[in-house]
């Protein structure tokens, strides 16, 4: 790869390579984001329950 244009063009295969990586990024990073959000929600619920028990 010698230039940005060459990199983005992927030797004429850009229309296949970049959508594949885009889908990969959305699904794989999305599963990570979703897992973090799920844990935060579970911790919040547990915190609320702990406060109720204390009262």
């Amino acid at each position: 790869m010698h230039s940005w244009h060459e990199f983005l063009d992927m030797g004429g295969y850009a229309v296949y390579v970049w959508p594949a990586y885009a889908v990969g990024f959305v699904v794989i990073a999305g599963s990570g984001w979703n897992a973090r959000r799920g844990l935060q929600q579970a911790l919040r619920r547990a915190r609320r329950r702990a406060q109720e028990v204390k009262r």
Partner: peptide, 16 residues
Amino acid sequence: GFTLVTLVAGSLWGKP
């Protein structure tokens, strides 16, 4: 998720 990515990426590789 990994299986879906495998199928989509494979499909996009298969076309050309």
